[in-house]
Computed example of a mutant assay.
Amino acid sequence: MNKKNQEIIEAFQFRHACKKFDSTKVVSEEDFNTILEAGRLSPSSFGFEPWKFLVVQDKKLREKLFHVSWGAQNSFNGASHFVIILARKKIDTVYNSEYITRIMSEVQNLPADVSDGKRAAYENFQKNDFNLLESDRTLFDWASKQTYIALGNMLTAAAFLQIDSCPIEGFNIEKAEEILKEEGILNSEHFGVSVMASFGYRASEPHEKTRQNLNDIVQWI
Rank of each mutant, 00 (worst) to 15 (best):
Y122L: 15
S28A: 10
K127Q: 14
H81N: 15
E30S: 14
K59M: 05
N131Y: 08
K59H: 06
E98P: 00
F48V: 12
E30K: 13
G47Q: 08
D129G: 00
F46Q: 11
L54R: 04
D22L: 01
Q126S: 06
H81S: 13
A38H: 07
W142F: 15
K127T: 13
E63G: 11
F76C: 03
S42T: 06
S28R: 10
S115D: 06
L139D: 05
L41K: 11
K52G: 04
K60M: 11
N153D: 09
R40L: 14
E49K: 13
K89P: 03
H67S: 13
P50D: 11
R119S: 07
V68T: 06
Y95C: 05
L155F: 04
V83G: 08
F76D: 02
Q146C: 00
Q108E: 12
A72N: 11
Q73D: 02
L155I: 09
H81T: 09
A120M: 10
K20P: 00
T34C: 09
V114W: 07
D31F: 05
R40M: 13
L61I: 12
H81R: 14
A87T: 02
F32G: 03
G71R: 05
F160L: 15
R40K: 10
A72P: 08
M154F: 03
L61R: 01
L151C: 04
D92R: 12
P50M: 08
F66K: 15
V107F: 14
A120D: 12
S42D: 06
R119E: 02
V26N: 12
V114S: 14
K89G: 07
Q126Y: 02
V55L: 01
G152R: 00
L65N: 08
V107D: 13
V83H: 08
R62K: 15
K145C: 12
K52L: 10
A121E: 14
S135H: 02
E49F: 10
F32N: 03
T147N: 09
R102P: 00
F130S: 06
N96P: 05
W70M: 08
L110E: 13
L132K: 11
D58M: 01
D31P: 02
K20W: 01
V107P: 06
E123Q: 15
E98C: 00
T101C: 01
C18H: 04
M104I: 02
D58T: 06
L110R: 14
Y122P: 01
G39S: 04
E29C: 02
Q57W: 00
L36H: 06
G47P: 04
R119K: 15
K64C: 02
F160G: 09
T147Y: 05
Q73L: 01
S80L: 07
R40A: 09
W142D: 01
D22I: 03
Q108C: 05
G78A: 07
A159C: 12
K64E: 15
R88A: 12
F46C: 10
R40E: 03
P43Y: 04
F21I: 10
N128W: 01
D164Q: 02
G152N: 12
K52D: 13
D116V: 07
L36R: 07
E30R: 10
A112L: 12
